[in-house]
């Protein structure tokens, strides 16, 4: 069976600038992969290029063995769910209707039922009838996560899903993504909190200047060398009872 997501030597450009250069990656079903790197390293471009949302200058991206370039929008939607960094909502739609957008291929009643189920899972069932613009940023983030979960796609890709959330909501979000992986989905998330990435991801991809410079289990990928050369941090991951924690200072 083909891996849910395979990138082969993918390159993208923004004008004359190369923002992603020869990135190769395979994500298997059931694993949680964290993509980390400094601002501007190419994390969002990696996700967007791999989903066919950015034109590729070179290489190929495959979803379940099929090139994204040849997939119809409907087929792509069945193979991958995407939670973008941008949490803007244009209209004051109730949460249940926003979550139901994740199940757009279903009839309205079935999509609503799936939306309510997803809202309950993210602990936002009490917000079901509240307008998205009448919510706090954290509440809206939960509703948007519910939309991603409602897709029930075999590949879930989340761009900075915990940005701006309180610690409890951050852990809840990653626990929910891990639960999806436990059920067989492949999960990819960009993260800025390296300690959180180390605790919650099976594998870490480190990007720097558009290239993948390290890849592997958290302690290997986030070595002292990488922390120092990519993130300009002097320190290391320290094992605690709650999992690895980053102890570091700026160089």
């Amino acid at each position: 069976m083909s891996a849910p997501w395979v990138l082969s030597e993918v390159a993208t450009r923004h004008g004359a600038n190369t923002v992603l250069n020869g990135a190769s990656l395979t994500v298997a079903a059931g694993e949680v992969v964290g993509v980390v790197g400094p601002n501007g390293a190419g994390k969002t471009s990696l996700l967007r290029a791999g989903l066919g949302l950015l034109p590729l200058a070179a290489g190929e991206a495959r979803l379940a063995g099929m090139s994204v370039a040849t997939l119809t929008p409907g087929a792509r939607a069945r193979l991958a769910g995407y939670l973008p960094q941008d949490r803007r909502v244009a209209w004051n739609l109730p949460a249940r209707m926003i979550a139901a957008l994740g199940a757009a291929d279903l009839a309205e009643d079935a999509a609503d039922a799936r939306a309510l189920d997803a809202l309950a899972r993210v602990g936002a069932d009490h917000l079901a009838d509240r307008g998205a613009l009448d919510m706090s940023g954290g509440e809206r983030a939960r509703v948007l996560l519910a939309r991603l979960l409602a897709t029930r796609a075999p590949l879930l890709i989340a761009d900075e899903p915990v940005a701006g959330l309180d610690p409890d909501a951050q852990l809840l979000t990653l626990d929910l993504l891990r639960a999806e992986a436990a059920k067989g989905a492949a999960v990819v998330a960009t993260l800025h909190d390296l300690g959180l990435a180390a605790r919650c991801c099976d594998r870490i991809i480190v990007l720097s200047h558009g290239r993948i410079v390290a890849e592997g289990p958290p302690r290997e990928a986030l070595s002292r060398f990488i922390l120092s050369h990519v993130f300009r941090l002097d320190g290391e991951l320290v094992e605690t009872s709650a999992g690895p924690v980053l102890a570091a200072r700026r160089i």
Binding site: R48, L51, L53, T72, P73, G74, R76, A77, R78, A80, G81, Y82, P84, D86, R88, V89, A90, W91, L93, M97, I98, L101, G102, A104, D105, L144, R147, T151
Partner: peptide
């Protein structure tokens, strides 16, 4: 239907299977 899906922006709409 597409106009409703556009509520969350064009990328989400495209990733939800909408031929934009």
């Amino acid at each position: 239907r597409g106009l409703r899906m556009l509520t969350l922006g064009e990328e989400v709409a495209r990733m939800s299977g909408l031929p934009m």
